[in-house]
Each structure stands twice: as structure tokens, then as C-alpha cells.
């Protein structure tokens, strides 16, 4: 497939071959760590420590997977992570789209001031509020529950609100007007007109929220102490620090934790790319 690029007209054949060669060798460098991760997970620990290394393990060993996944309560971690992820995505998409709708489509005094406050909160590193929030959640007895990781997601997050607002601004106002004449309430317009037209940005924000929840480490590290409540990220990290001498199992568990995200990425590539482009260009 060739693509209409803005540059690259009149490239000579030689230069194009050179570009391809550069891309191929660079991508080998980029992919090797991931390939190495998977091949290491298919070796016995003895094979891992062999030099020169076996790039294709022989014999292939699959025992690291069942061993690793039972050595830690993997399914428990997966369930915990999934619960947190689903609730986070739901909360983020719902609350951010509501707020963004208000900021983009309803005019009211103080709207701009609120928007600037919202923007300025993006500047604040989360470490500033980390300690007071921990104190509050501790006093509420929420430590060692999922609540501190999930409840805040239902109250909007500045960056995603900003992204959605920018998108909502581009939807023609005539549509809302026509709906109003037909007797639609503001909620109807939001739910039945604006949201269905905003699928790309909703998908992008949902995807980012999912990734953030799946990959989050510092949140679970602060709030979850009982091993039964661990997420995959937390479980993997503690496994790594305690049982680093079982590299085969460690690589197997790391592979299993990474695989769902990679599969998700392959299926949702366009949404990913769109989302990143959206954040980069409009930011």
C-alpha cells in the first residue's frame, strides 16, 4: 500500500531502498526485547542462563506458564484488575462526556472561568494531592478496597474533559437546534445526538482510561495491601522482587500480563492512532 505523503515525491529508487533498510533494522532493534521476553518464557531456567543464548529455545518448554500462573493467584489478580478497569472506563467516559457537553454546548456565566480552572488543574502533578487523598481515604476506611481507585473516576478528569470538549465543539449547532424545536431536552440532545456522533473520541478516551487503569502501579501500590486485592501490575511487581530467581516463570507472567494489551492494540489500532493524534495535535 502506498500512501499519499506530503513529502517524499521524487524519491529515487536508491533512497527508497535505503529508507526501507533503515526501517527494517530499527524495527528489529525495537522488537527484539519483546521477542526475547516470549522466547525466555519458553525456556527452562537452565536454558536462560546458557551462553551463547538459544534464540529459538530447543526444546520448547511450556511449563513456565502453568507454573507461573498457579504460583501467584493469577486469576484473582486478573479479576481484580478487570473490575477496576471496567468501572474506571465507565466512570471516565460517563462523567467526562457530561462535563465536556456542559462546557461545549451550554452557555452560562462563568463557563470560561470554569474551563480555565479545569485547564490549570492539568498542570498540577498528582503527587501534590496524593498524600491528602490518602489521608482522606484512610479515614473513610477505604484502604484495601477498590474504592479509592474507582470512585474518583466518576467525577471527571481534566485532560479527557478537554479532549471531549474540543470534539463536541465541532458538532454543528443546527442539529441541537432542530432537536430542541422537536421538544428534546438537553439530556436527550446529549444522549441521543451528541454522544452517537462522538464515537471516535469516546472510544479513544475509553481506551486510554482502560490502559491507564490496567497499567496503573502507584495507585494500587498505595491503596491495596492484602494480597487478595492485588492487581496484575502489583502482583507482577511483588513476584519480581520476591522470586526474581525464577526468570522463566517471571517472563511467562509478564508475557501473560502484556498479551491482552497487545491483542487489544491490534484490534483497536485505528482508535489508538486517532486518539494519540487527537491528544498531540489539539493539546
Amino acid at each position: 500500500m502506498t500512501r499519499e505523503g506530503s513529502e517524499g515525491r521524487g524519491l529515487t529508487r536508491g533512497k527508497r531502498i535505503a529508507a526501507h533498510c533503515a526501517l527494517i533494522s530499527l524495527s528489529v532493534v525495537f522488537l527484539t526485547p519483546l521477542v526475547w521476553l516470549v522466547t525466555s518464557s519458553l525456556k527452562t531456567d537452565k536454558q536462560i542462563f546458557k551462553f551463547p543464548p538459544e534464540w529459538i529455545p530447543s526444546p520448547l518448554t511450556f511449563q513456565n506458564y502453568p507454573a507461573g500462573l498457579t504460583f501467584i493467584p493469577f486469576w484473582r489478580y486478573l479479576l481484580n484488575t478487570s473490575i477496576i478497569c471496567v468501572l474506571s472506563v465507565l466512570g471516565t467516559v460517563l462523567s467526562c462526556s457530561l462535563v465536556a457537553y456542559g462546557l461545549a454546548r451550554i452557555r452560562w456565566r462563568g463557563r470560561n472561568a470554569l474551563f480555565y480552572i479545569l485547564l490549570s488543574t492539568m498542570m498540577l502533578p498528582f503527587q501534590v494531592t496524593m498524600v491528602p487523598l490518602f489521608v482522606v481515604f484512610a479515614k473513610l476506611g477505604w484502604v484495601d478496597t477498590f474504592l479509592p481507585l474507582v470512585v474518583p473516576r466518576f467525577f471527571g478528569s481534566a485532560f479527557y474533559i478537554f479532549l471531549m470538549r474540543q470534539f463536541f465543539l465541532t458538532i454543528p449547532h443546527d442539529l441541537s437546534e432542530a432537536a430542541r424545536i422537536d421538544g428534546c431536552s438537553e439530556w436527550d440532545i446529549y444522549w441521543r445526538i451528541v454522544l452517537p456522533l462522538s464515537k471516535p473520541v469516546l472510544a479513544a478516551v475509553g481506551l486510554f482510561a482502560f490502559m491507564a487503569a490496567w497499567n496503573d502501579y502507584i495507585g494500587p501500590l498505595i491503596y491495596l495491601t492484602d494480597q487478595r486485592n492485588y492487581t496484575l501490575a502489583l502482583g507482577l511487581a511483588s513476584f519480581s522482587s520476591q522470586y526474581g530467581s525464577y526468570p522463566g516463570m517471571l517472563m511467562a507472567v509478564t508475557t501473560v500480563m502484556t498479551l491482552p494489551i497487545i491483542v487489544l492494540f491490534f484490534f483497536a489500532q485505528r482508535t489508538f492512532i486517532q486518539g494519540i493524534t487527537l491528544t498531540g495535535i489539539k493539546g
Binding site: 525495537f30 522488537l31 500480563m257
Partner: peptide, 11 residues
Amino acid sequence: YYLPTVVSGVA
């Protein structure tokens, strides 16, 4: 080229 960026911080 984008693939490595989806790997989580812990992994």
C-alpha cells in the same frame, strides 16, 4: 514502532 509503548510500566 508503537507496540512497545503499550507495555505497562511494571512489565
